[in-house]
Design a protein around this nucleic acid. Sequence first.
DNA 1: ACGGTTTTGGACTGAGCTGTCCAAAACTGA
DNA 2: TCAGTTTTGGACAGCTCAGTCCAAAACCGT
Lengths: 186, 186
Amino acid sequence: MFDEEQAVDAAMRVFWASGYEATSTQALCTATGLGRSSIYNTFTSKRTLFDRALHRYFETTGATQLALIQREDLPIRERVRRILWNAVEPAPGDPPGCLAINTAVELGPTHPELVELLNTDHAPKLAALAEAIRTAQAAGEVDAARDPAALADYTFVVLGGLRVAARRGATSASQISVIEAALQAF
Amino acid sequence: MFDEEQAVDAAMRVFWASGYEATSTQALCTATGLGRSSIYNTFTSKRTLFDRALHRYFETTGATQLALIQREDLPIRERVRRILWNAVEPAPGDPPGCLAINTAVELGPTHPELVELLNTDHAPKLAALAEAIRTAQAAGEVDAARDPAALADYTFVVLGGLRVAARRGATSASQISVIEAALQAF
DNA sequence: ACGGTTTTGGACTGAGCTGTCCAAAACTGA
DNA sequence: TCAGTTTTGGACAGCTCAGTCCAAAACCGT
């Protein structure tokens, strides 16, 4: 009767902004514009809806991120720069930070199955970036002595750090200067 | 009647492990070994106890961190390495990650007064590290063209990223290789 | 030892939470 | 149009939550 994906999207933004525990089912009803029946009929439980929201987040952000990693027309340093820039130019209407990181921080130690979910989303991006760095090394763009997997890991750790900073209201200027500092490691 | 600091310490670890919202007052009673009366008599509310816990976290971790930043007998790169190593060798009995970062992520966007609190703790460490880097530049340890404040900011962003990774159960090996990659930026 | 204060255990309160239920409304195919 | 199914609103149930209260116990200076 209603657009399911649209409802998941609205729920996603609430979880993203406020976290899992702090989000009430009432807040989800308000945000989606649906009644409790509709939500529970369609999504079974708050937790299931959260999982759907997380999957949607992966699909929407993961695809563009992966595409960016594999843009071979750009030098690797530029690709990494643009990955990190996602943390300084949030799309309008998006809450600060990153739902995946919020989830890892809030629920990681207490919900191992979510950690696994986060990892299965993360692993291919990590692998793709490591592979891209390896190619860049062959082309002489990056010092061949460096470990590509470590550099890929490093990149996402910095991205995570930027996303944490965003949750604290870091200024764009500060984020940008951190990115430039981070790129010196390449 | 009981050791107040010890109670705050126990509460701190529960908040640190599970987050603010997911921690019930009952869990705080169990962890501290106190009854509800004692807790509410002494700490007024869950939120006040959380603030106390956060302050305790600042005092215990902030002091050693600041001391490390100012250890002029060590080269700056080594000091930064040791700062970052805090994320790979957690003290036994400490939950994974960092209470300050967990708080920024979980409560930052919805509780601006906590962000302010986090910032007043963070600012002096940032300033001290920037100053230490400036001194290191004068001694020729670090490229003088780099912006000390940006490098200091960068260091703590990486630390934050490592702490997020720790919440996802990152291996020590991965954390260490990220640290070594991060140090290349200096 | 003892009167006065402080602290404690644990029952209690009211609010808010997730999830259920059902009758009415809306939709469907023929 | 109309029987049959699906979806919806909103009341409801059961539970857990943060916080209160009070009588009993523990503590204290003298």
